[in-house]
Design a protein around this nucleic acid. Structure first.
Length: 481
DNA sequence: GGTACTCACCTTAGCTGC
DNA sequence: GACCGCAGCTAAGGTGAG
């Protein structure tokens, strides 16, 4: 469906203008060879997707995330944000701040499916789409201006289609670079005021030449790359706004933040950001980590978790067609101290067995008496895997003879191929290591799949077979329409 | 008193080889 | 042979984002 008529706006000038008449008024994105970059950010995405299948909850505070004592908020709608509930906040804090909120466990697979639909809308506008997360993306629409109209018209087109076809809201920011577009989309968001939730502008564009005026009044914390730690360090040298940052000598920033970050932030403060919109970014690491509902205290317990995690990681790794040389484990103790240990192998590996061979000695070398609340396995250093041969291949080329033993590594490679084929046909939970089996509930055993727990363990005991599969009485989940 | 998961990138330090 | 500077790699920790 096409959106309705769009109100005239100074930015609605699809044709390029010369620098000579720039004094006539603000220039448009795409003028004079500037880029037109949009940042599209879905509004309270996870909650909005849930409200499509739970319309009776519209208008009430709703929170999506981990429901257990160690869970966090993944998303809160604006009604919940009025009570001070925000994403990444511990769920227990959110419950305290907003006891009347409806708490829903997340459904990551559903959000991923809806996200794919949203990205289809983006692709209809430009092939230059860089996904940033399930709920946001950069779009380089410079090449679409002649065909589809001004950046504002394209932004309204995207918003209209997402609203009409997917019944979801989004905010769009635009500028000559990714980072300006990202800051602009934040300005376009709905606002929480004393009177309640007020709709935002929906679209905010920063015309070429007006970047510094837009940037320098913003708090420095608004910059992409300034988190709590950097903010504190900047505050210590008296920097509070982006304007302060721009006025600070780059040598001071390098001393305060280090070479890379110091120079990078100084460039951003002067609106220097020529990073392109990259549709395809090569993955550099793959990992899984899990916070346990109950702490682990023995090496045996952790090795069992490692088997599950290595299996999940290796499956995703093989799907990329690559192998990995570096294996890293992450352990977080009950006191929240976190350590990592890594080991680099002579050549890239692809199987869970090979990953475990590196993981187990690292686990064994760690003192666990404090108790472990989180454990993770990841791989990096991707490269062409060593030749992988199926058992048939091995038999065919004479490396193995029927009935004679082949090496353990060869057996694992052959077995992994078979496992991938079974999962491809029957689903990810159809086969897995025996140590991943949850206990029996009388209906048979079920595999506990890493990655299913996105926002912390929920309130049920570990490894219960019904984990996450049954709607709870307070969470009757009808199917998505 | 409470802090998930995934990924990217940076810094620092130590080691090795030239 | 000892030392220096440099580059490259590895390991570990930290920061930030969404």
């Amino acid at each position: 469906m096409t959106p309705g008529p769009v109100a005239p706006h100074p930015d609605d000038r699809p044709t390029a203008r010369s620098r000579a008449d720039a004094s006539a008024g603000p220039r448009s994105l795409g003028d004079d060879g500037t880029r037109a970059v949009l940042h599209v950010d879905m509004d309270a995405f996870y909650v909005s997707v849930e409200l499509r299948r739970r319309p009776e909850l519209v208008g009430r505070p709703v929170v999506v995330g981990g429901t257990g004592p160690r869970g966090v908020v993944a998303a809160a709608n604006y009604e919940a944000r009025r009570y001070g509930v925000f994403s990444a906040m511990p769920s227990s804090t959110a419950r305290r701040r907003c006891p009347n909120a409806v708490f829903l466990p997340g459904d990551h697979d559903l959000y991923a499916r809806v996200s794919a639909q949203v990205h289809e809308v983006f692709q209809a506008v430009t092939p230059l789409v860089e996904p940033l997360a399930l709920d946001e993306a950069f779009l380089d629409v410079t090449g679409s201006l002649r065909l589809l109209g001004s950046a504002r018209q394209i932004a309204e087109l995207v918003r209209g289609r997402i609203r009409d076809e997917l019944h979801l809201d989004c905010s769009v920011g635009g500028g000559t670079s990714k980072f300006i577009a990202k800051l602009a989309s934040k300005q376009a968001k709905p606002r929480i005021t004393d009177r309640g939730v007020e709709p935002g502008d929906g679209v905010v564009l920063v015309p070429p030449g007006e970047e510094l005026g837009f940037l320098h009044r913003l708090p420095v914390r608004a910059l992409w790359g300034v988190g709590p730690s950097t903010f504190e360090r900047l505050q210590r040298v008296g920097i509070r706004t982006v304007g302060d940052l721009a006025a600070t000598d780059v040598a001071v920033l390098v001393r305060t933040l280090g070479q890379a970050q110091g120079r990078h932030l100084h460039d951003l403060a002067w609106a220097r950001d020529d990073r392109p919109v990259e549709p395809e970014r090569a993955l550099k690491s793959i990992g899984h980590e899990e916070t346990f509902a109950h702490d682990r205290h023995t090496h045996d317990e952790l090795v069992r978790e490692a088997v599950r995690l290595a299996d999940a990681v290796s499956t995703r790794l093989r799907a990329t067609g690559q192998g990995a040389r570096t294996v890293t484990i992450k352990v977080r103790f009950t006191d929240f101290q976190t350590l990592t240990r890594s080991h680099t192998l002579p050549s890239p590996v692809t199987t869970a067995a090979a990953i475990l061979e590196a993981v187990v000695p690292m686990v064994q070398a760690i003192e666990l008496t404090r108790g472990v609340r989180l454990f993770g396995v990841s791989v990096s250093g991707f490269g062409e895997p060593a030749e992988q041969l199926s058992l048939d291949d091995l038999l065919a080329r004479g490396d193995a003879v029927p009935g004679a033993p082949v090496s353990a590594a060869q057996e694992w490679e052959a077995a992994s191929e078979t496992i991938d084929a079974i999962r491809g046909r029957f689903g990810a939970a159809s086969i897995g290591p025996a140590s991943s089996l949850a206990g029996s509930d009388g209906r048979g055993l079920r595999l506990v799949r890493p990655g299913a727990q996105q926002w912390g363990p929920d309130h049920r005991p570990d490894h219960r077979p019904d984990a996450g599969t049954e709607p709870t009485p307070t969470d009757p989940r009808p199917p998505d329409p």
